[in-house]
Design a protein around this nucleic acid. Sequence first.
DNA 1: TGACATGGTTCGTAATACGTACCAAGAATA
DNA 2: TATTCTTGGTACGTATTACGAACCATGTCA
Lengths: 153, 153
Amino acid sequence: MKRSSPRRPAAVRDEGLADALVTASFVIAAQLSRIGAEHGLSLTLCRVLGILRDRRPRMSELADYLGLEKQTMSGLIARAEERGLVARAPNPEDRRATDVILAPAGARLVERMRAEALEALAPLVAPLDPADRRRLQALLQRMLAARDGADGR
Amino acid sequence: MKRSSPRRPAAVRDEGLADALVTASFVIAAQLSRIGAEHGLSLTLCRVLGILRDRRPRMSELADYLGLEKQTMSGLIARAEERGLVARAPNPEDRRATDVILAPAGARLVERMRAEALEALAPLVAPLDPADRRRLQALLQRMLAARDGADGR
DNA sequence: TGACATGGTTCGTAATACGTACCAAGAATA
DNA sequence: TATTCTTGGTACGTATTACGAACCATGTCA
């Protein structure tokens, strides 16, 4: 796929960077997906628990975070609730809204999976020395800080 | 969640890096997923087409690349074949095996989505100047080079 | 030749995600 | 106040994705 026209230099120039970002994205997602699967969780449900770790969103906020429709969240939360991982709580300020919170079992599970994720990512960053890790972290954070709204987890 | 014990420094020290990697992974995957969805493709099928762009794998290799079972690949390829995106071809060296190749429509689609992906990632890397982009790419590539087998796309 | 392994497919099932439709509660307007 | 309209969530039906189990064809090895 040689591109003979020198137009649109910005996109063309970053092809290598884009490939690296995409590949890294899949490699990391594969690790998280594997860890989730070992505990019977889909990647989406892992993200839900990760969000609930430090927030108490309502159903619709949760759906917005993840880019899903609200009826999808309903089903996800319903199944997670049956398994004792999360709980629904009425929102104190809006009687229409339903907040989602971590149940005790869900809180234990999310901490455990977080530890497993750190271990799973360790070999990936192993080839980088501490200074390089700091550089990589800083570059990623600058990249992510500029993005509009939704948080990734 | 303070960890009072100073054990296992490697994992603890990289918590910020791990968070940045995971968040970046979700942000990038969301872009690719959106682009795929606009063309009626799942993220998995996007990856399949991306692999076929420069390879002619057999069914089982494709499944291994993506970490899926072979019967999952059968269904995916069957549906993609019905839509005229890919084609099956007998493997010349092993009569049991089936190679998967891009059909013309699939080749056009994958190039188009690749261009869209480059555009979608451009705003993400926008806050980084050219030198930082080179540094980020180099760091990611060093990270990915060390990993065992499977390619991310 | 037989026994076993490998490569794919088919079948049945569960989870995920969406569109549509619906109800309850709040907000806005007459 | 009564009437719309919007927002928040759920229920239903359907398509896709993914897996385990079972199966057949081909290859490999004893």
